[in-house]
Design a protein around this nucleic acid. Structure first.
Lengths: 228, 228
DNA sequence: ATCAGTTTATGATATATATCAATTGGGGAG
DNA sequence: CTCCCCAATTGATATATATCATAAACTGAT
């Protein structure tokens, strides 16, 4: 039985289910569903019932809300090891935000009833999930405050550094989002996002080839992010 | 023994410890400390080690962060039944925000080791604390997004309605914060907060007597909050 | 009671950001 | 392959908000 469960070999097992017994893992495993998404696919739709605990095995996604006049506000970007359904998993019945894949992405979905049972019977697992939840919500709140206290240039610098440092781990990368999406993330207009990027390019801080960004003057960018 | 525990009679017991056995409650009770704070007192100081699980029995507090240049950003206001130390309780060792009493406030503090033990041994309690955590962080994130998508007037309207509807439950109340603190909450300058309030007064939407605010045209204020 | 410091308030001005308009280029649907 | 829509870009202008300056009212401390 235990040999048949592919969760045993999952690289994310240690991260999240290290305190789960083999029996419990097998139970999770039998009910779990893995899903693949292409760029642009909805993984979670705002307003839908929360039925699964979802975590991202690979790829990159954006979390966002849509307000009455159809405008989108991006909450956060999430990469593997982030638990995209974690924010409001048990606070309410319906999702209060949507999630869309920015790259080819794979999720592992576990029925929420199973997770609930695991919480009820396994204290170590509870502790682990609480820590993860706190970490995720802390990060989202922190991010929001960081963005809010910056001006346009500071926000753009912050976002570029976020992609370079936290998401891709290198100074040159392909932007997984449009200028418009950056605008929706930092709360400014698309035109001004473009203008700031152009300014950085003209100042020799970054190079731009369409979606490709290369950070040339990393320290300078850091300085702009920190002191405007 | 159980008769001596004042937690048995605490009006917040049902809200948070309904799934806790009498023995467990007594254990919590013996280690708990109740603290009183006056307006302006620090309840939590950013950077301090998280040693207690803290909830607000009475009063009103503000949660805020201080950035490098000494400016404060207010995250949220919390009233009784809110769990002020809940945001990052288990995500890290130190508080990433401060909490100050805005009115006479009383907290109940329980050692974090006790709460941790309770999580490990009591699944229902775990479930309950997870729901509370999700609710608190959801609210803070939601609040932040709501504020962000409004202009100055909309933000001020939103804040006034927040105090009237969510905090005081009536249309006339004494502002528990300065104009400067409102500014720190909505991310605008003090002068512009004052100007917007004055505008609302001149338009007959509110009456102002120093800190006393009376909402005269509630629907109008609602409309400004929703559509600028 | 007085002084110092902060809060509230208002006006004038500067600055940042949004809006509107026009152009170019690319990607997807048919 | 072509058409059309959307993304990216740039410029001109409008608007919102910040900044600076000033003053009155209030608050707390001595």
């Amino acid at each position: 039985m235990s040999l048949e469960c592919s969760c045993e070999a999952c690289e994310l097992k240690e991260l999240f289910f290290k305190n789960v017994s083999t029996d419990q893992l097998n139970s999770l495993c039998s009910s779990r569903i893995e899903r693949n998404y292409s760029r642009g696919d909805y993984i979670i739709e705002e307003g839908r019932y929360i039925e699964d605990f979802i975590y991202l095995k690979s790829g990159l996604v954006k979390l966002f809300v849509t307000n009455d006049n159809g405008k989108e506000q991006i909450l956060s970007f999430a990469k593997p090891f982030d638990f995209v359904s974690l924010l409001s998993l048990f606070s309410q019945k319906k999702y209060s935000y949507s999630v869309i894949a920015l790259e080819e992405s794979t999720t592992c979905n576990i029925s929420i009833a199973n997770v609930r049972n695991l919480i009820l019977e396994n204290g170590d697992f509870s502790m682990s999930i609480i820590e993860k939840m706190n970490t995720v919500s802390d990060a989202v709140i922190h991010e929001s405050l960081e963005i809010r206290r910056r001006n346009l240039r500071g926000r753009i610098a912050y976002v570029l550094l976020h992609f370079a440092d936290d998401i891709y781990g290198k100074k040159d990368f392909e932007l997984p989002v449009s200028r418009k999406e950056i605008a929706e993330y930092i709360g400014m207009t698309t035109e001004n996002v473009i203008r700031a990027l152009t300014e950085f390019r003209k100042d020799g801080i970054i190079k731009i080839y369409g979606k490709l960004i290369e950070i040339v003057a990393y320290e300078k960018l850091k300085q702009i992010s920190e002191h405007g």
